[in-house]
Amino acid sequence: MSSNHTQIITDIRKQRGSDLVIMAHHYQHERVILHADLKGDSLELARHVPSLKAEYIVFCGVSFMAETAAMLAGEDQKVIIPAPSAGCTMSGMAPAHLLDCVMRRLTEDGASVIPLAYVNTSAAVKGIVGRYGGSVCTSANAKTMLAWALKRGETVLFLPDRNLGNNTADQLGVPANRRMQLDIRGNGSHIDVKSATAARLLLWPGLCSIHERFREGQIDEIRQRDPDALIVVHPECRPGVVRKADAAGSTSFIIKYVANAPAEATIYVGTEINLVERLAKQYRGDKRIRPLVPSSCANMALTTERLLAETLENLENSEPVRVPDDTVHYARIALERMLEACA
């Protein structure tokens, strides 16, 4: 049956030509990735969108990524996501109404608080961040963007991933005693504003359910069993995991790390299983690529080859991703600040 879906997709891509571009995140299944014109992490895919001329951009990923693409696309372009229900647990931990309440509380006495939102957030959150003078970041450019934010305010609020925030702060040398995890209960009513605005870095208490599954003990076990092995993890992992690994970085960093590793090396990778399995297949016979532990994203898995084929068959009738104009204005400002800072 999959061969039939493959043929449908191949035929439609040929018919549509340059009017169709399929984008896919690295965490998509191999049966989807093989049809992508462009694949990459969040930053790579975002950078491509403004230069695309295609009428239809089909985004194989999760909803916040498709929203970002829609905001960066032209007025005559349509961004279609095959699985509109593909959300993100981390993004859901930072709803826009709660961020708005928290920012109002933090700045009510005139404090200079710059919000920096990870791209794993909704367009509405990005809009609030843009309105308060902030920007967004990806795992690939978090260090650059946190340094950017720290230069612009007395206090930076990093959201929603506390692990990425702490790991990036470690890279920049922000002292642990100048960091504070926010208590966001009660729409921010529990926040001690005086203490919060005295901190250099405020951390939203969110996390990635995929990368939270990796533990320090798993690395200790590998070190005992296979002491010559290399271990690379994603910076959404706990700080203790990042410290014990040989290297940590974005999905693009992980791909390059594996490529540059010595022949015959054994490399344990701590990130989403689709990427790990793809790397294992690519380097089979040359290097041994293994998961730290298998960890899959159920939301990324919602996009299948069958669903992609059905989406392409019904492009004209597919509802494009829409972001309200008032949200787009400030969210686009936040995104453009990132693209400019990382040019």
Rank of each mutant, 00 (worst) to 15 (best):
V328A: 12
V258F: 08
R223W: 01
S250V: 03
R105L: 11
Q218Y: 11
L34K: 14
T311P: 07
V49T: 08
T271S: 12
L43Q: 10
L203Y: 08
E316L: 09
I254G: 00
L335A: 05
K78Y: 13
A199I: 12
T271N: 11
A66F: 05
N177W: 14
S189W: 01
I231N: 12
N166P: 00
N166Q: 15
R322G: 01
P50Q: 04
Y283P: 03
K39D: 04
N317S: 15
P50V: 08
F158A: 07
P324I: 06
S139P: 03
P262N: 07
R225I: 13
W148T: 04
L157Y: 00
E277C: 03
A124Q: 14
I289N: 08
A343G: 14
V62L: 03
A24S: 13
M103I: 04
L45H: 04
L279H: 06
Q171P: 06
M23A: 12
A124K: 14
D109L: 04
L315K: 08
R105V: 02
W204G: 04
R200K: 15
R16V: 05
L202D: 13
L164N: 02
N141I: 06
G173S: 11
V102S: 10
S2P: 03
N120D: 10
H48T: 06
I191E: 09
L150K: 14
T138Q: 09
A229V: 06
K194S: 11
E212S: 13
K151G: 02
S51R: 13
R200N: 06
E310N: 09
L106R: 10
T304K: 04
S51E: 13
L20P: 02
R16I: 04
E264F: 01
A140T: 12
S209P: 00
H29P: 09
V62K: 01
E336C: 08
A298T: 15
A66Y: 02
Q282M: 14
H190R: 15
G92K: 02
L20D: 01
D220K: 02
R105Q: 11
I57V: 12
G153M: 13
T121Q: 11
T303P: 02
K256M: 12
V119K: 01
E264A: 14
A309N: 05
G74I: 03
H190Q: 14
K194C: 10
P294L: 05
I9E: 10
K281D: 15
V293S: 15
T304G: 07
M93L: 15
M71S: 00
I222A: 07
V156E: 07
Q7E: 14
V242M: 11
E154M: 01
T121W: 08
L159C: 12
I33M: 10
T89R: 03
E67Y: 05
I222Q: 04
V328M: 05
P262C: 04
L312Q: 02
Y56K: 10
G165D: 11
V174N: 03
L146K: 04
A247G: 13
R162P: 00
R200L: 13
H5D: 14
N163L: 03
A309P: 09
G87I: 07
D19F: 03
H26I: 08
N163V: 06
